[in-house]
Nucleic acid binder design. Sequence first.
DNA 1: CACCAGGTTGACC
DNA 2: GGTCAACATGGT
Length: 214
Amino acid sequence: MTFKTLKQIYITLLNELGPQDWWPAETPFEVVVGAILTQQTKWTNVEQAISNLKIHGLMEPECLAEADPGSVEDFVRCCGFYRQKASRLVNIAKYFADNGLENVFSMPVGDLRSEMLSLNGVGNETADSIVLYAANKPKFVIDAYTTRIMRCLGIEGDYIHLQELFEGELEEDVELYKEYHALIVEYAKRYCGKKRCDGCLLLTTATELDGQNG
DNA sequence: CACCAGGTTGACC
DNA sequence: GGTCAACATGGT
């Protein structure tokens, strides 16, 4: 049998689920905030916290940087890990207020990634989410769902290994990277559980449909 | 009641 | 180098 390429898997997912149009946010800074808040938490909780912050006028780096820490904790409590997330958000807000969001996001992709990684509370996935969805620069985001699906397909590796696999095989395209990561998350949520996987067969065998555009 | 969620960090081998 | 508990709320 013929295995699918990563591009063919993308097309399969897109046909199956339709465009996901990630990341839901009104501004780049809102993406940054959401990227911290969504760690190990459902997105519905993040929506609530983001709404709280917006109502209180804190969805701007300059405002959040000066906000009362206790209040921020209350606003993000629904996301869990609320003490560390609150202090990390304020710290990151200070960083963007001091350096200027436009300046930061105009850095070359590699420099930007390193810069984001130096912030407390920003690891590989969060850094790449910010680079891709807030700064609109080409970095493929790997997460627990991606790792899980790849394992189902018989491919194991650490974060950087999987990232190099995707970036090496796909054309460098910000919109493709955005949509692909979103599709993987949605597909895995539905069909690829932590213990059971009911959907990865769809991804393993190539058909004539998979050759179409992309 | 047990388990999971769009991870990251710091401590300890 | 790698492994692992801690961080914490909310939904199924």
